[in-house]
């Protein structure tokens, strides 16, 4: 079997989850590579949308930021940010969005604001950016993050972006949130889904060579495990070729 890095299996797992999707809100780094891989494999009609105000991007190089000029050249459309947030996001046109996290709880609620107290922070993080409204409006939210106990916490220090809230059925609808919230968490060791009834994160698959105990050791709450736990399909040779030769030839994110 071909060797691959933890980042590569995160990328291929995320890309495959985009099969059949039409409009994706992309972030930089791994989500960007995953979305571009999906466009070349399972979702050829995928439109890449960036919060900087670009729809239908065709980046010719790996963008270092979501405001990279390569996202503009050859894009279908570039718009002012009010259009992007009001008509594309709040208007319900975004099917899947990728978010990163500093902390995530068992219901997929996300902290990217602060570690410690807000007024006297231990670590000041970036804050929301567009994440809060993305978490509310995108039809589905996919999360890519490394599996670590300091990230997968019992109690967020701050809730920046809503997931399944306290896990009560209908809670998101009661807040008038159009999106269905987090549906997938892809990590370097395992993949999680969310229970449709309780909104709780469920261990869906473990990557080849990883044990359930290793996953549990990096999660602060007792994990629910899917009845039929899967082993993640490793990257194929073709996927690895596209990633290494076309998408990230400099190996910046691998």
């Amino acid at each position: 079997m071909t060797n691959y890095t933890p980042s590569e299996i995160m990328i291929t797992s995320s890309a495959r989850a985009l099969a059949g999707e039409r409009v994706v809100f992309v972030g930089v780094g791994l989500p960007n590579i995953a979305c571009n891989l999906a466009q070349r494999t399972v979702a050829p009609d995928l439109e890449l949308v960036y919060e900087s105000g670009v729809f239908g991007a065709r980046p010719a190089r790996l963008p270092l930021s979501i405001g990279d000029p390569t996202l503009i050249s050859r894009a279908t459309l570039a718009c002012p940010m009010p259009d992007l947030f009001m008509y594309y996001l709040q208007g319900g046109r975004i099917e899947v969005a990728f978010l990163g996290v500093a902390q995530i709880d068992r219901f997929g609620n996300i902290n990217t604001t602060v570690i410690g107290d807000y007024q006297r922070p231990k670590v000041r993080l970036p804050g929301s950016g567009g994440a809060c409204e993305i978490a509310i409006h995108a039809k589905k939210v996919f999360i890519i993050t490394h599996l670590a106990r300091r990230t997968f916490v019992e109690q967020l220090h701050f809730c920046t972006s809503p997931g399944h809230l306290s896990g009560q059925p209908g809670e998101r609808a009661a807040w008038d949130m159009p999106g269905t919230g987090p549906q997938l968490v892809v990590t370097d060791k395992a993949i999680f889904h969310f229970d449709q009834e309780t909104g709780e994160m469920v261990l869906f698959s473990i990557h080849p060579g990883v044990t359930v105990e290793e996953v549990q050791a990096e999660v602060s709450w007792p994990l629910k495990i899917a009845a039929e736990l899967q082993i993640t399909e490793p990257p194929t040779d073709e996927e690895l070729r596209i990633i290494r030769e076309e998408l990230d030839p400099g190996g910046m994110y691998l």
Binding site: C132, I136, M177, P178
Partner: peptide, 24 residues
């Protein structure tokens, strides 16, 4: 974005669907 739009249009506030269920 909404704050700038409100300022540009000289409106007293601007409505948006965000922030629900968060600590912001």
């Amino acid at each position: 974005v909404a704050r700038y739009m409100s300022g540009a249009a000289r409106l007293p506030f601007f409505p948006l669907r965000s922030y629900m269920g968060t600590d912001q």
